[in-house]
């Protein structure tokens, strides 16, 4: 067995710094709007703010734990078996998060249903393990995971805000629209998720395109 196979090519900590990783995850490489990762929870649990934020919290817990864990054992990873190790690590933390929710936030656990176990297949987490966790130190991995969690919070929070306010006239269950404003039932149904996400994505892209177009003129 060759020695070179033991270590990943970029095992030395020469990637972006922790601060760069943290900032990039929030807006410039926002997981929802720029990477288009983790679409399943973005569509499925954003009918209201409470389940959306519970999902963000559970995902953040798994993302941070798994990224730091992978970073700690990054020198032991074999390149061809790394995805297996990522999945194993993620699945463990997801199961812990699922049990914790069922024990201490039971109503939310019921509301989220199968979407908590499905965090295992959330591509944001495996992408961060692959891009950052398996290549950089634990502190950078932590900052990277935290930044992406905040980005995920912005993604889910914005979709859920649009859907809950339009669909139910509430935000976090608190009334924000007067009763005379009609409720758009479609927004809390599955088609509403696609429509809200598409419109927000269009808005983000449109905003991004603006300065460039000005520069061209």
């Amino acid at each position: 067995m060759a020695v070179a196979e033991l270590e990943l090519p970029a095992a030395v900590d020469d990637g972006p710094t922790a601060a760069e990783r943290f900032i990039a995850g929030i807006l410039p490489e926002n997981p929802t709007f720029r990477q288009l990762l983790g679409m399943c929870p973005t569509l499925a649990v954003t009918a209201a703010m409470k389940p959306a934020l519970t999902m963000v919290a559970a995902t953040a817990f798994v993302l941070i734990s798994a990224n730091v864990m992978v970073s700690l054992i990054r020198h032991l990873l074999k390149p061809h078996l790394r995805i297996l190790v990522f999945t194993l690590t993620i699945a463990t933390f997801v199961t812990i998060a699922d049990r914790l929710l069922a024990a201490y936030l039971y109503p939310m656990s019921v509301a989220l249903g199968p979407y908590v176990p499905l965090i295992i297949v959330n591509c944001i987490i495996i992408a961060r393990c692959e891009v950052c966790g398996s290549k950089q130190g634990p502190f950078t991995a932590f900052a990277d995971a935290a930044g992406n969690s905040l980005g995920f919070l912005i993604g889910l929070g914005s979709v859920a805000t649009v859907r809950e306010i339009l669909g139910m006239g509430t935000w976090f269950g608190l009334p924000v629209l007067p009763a005379v404003v009609p409720r758009w039932v479609i927004m809390v149904m599955p088609p509403g998720a696609f429509i809200a996400l598409a419109l927000l994505l269009a808005l983000v892209n449109w905003y991004q395109a603006r300065p460039k177009r000005r520069a061209e003129v």
Partner: peptide, 11 residues
Amino acid sequence: SWLILLLGLLF
């Protein structure tokens, strides 16, 4: 596979 086996046991 020792790492995976070990992690499996620990997890």
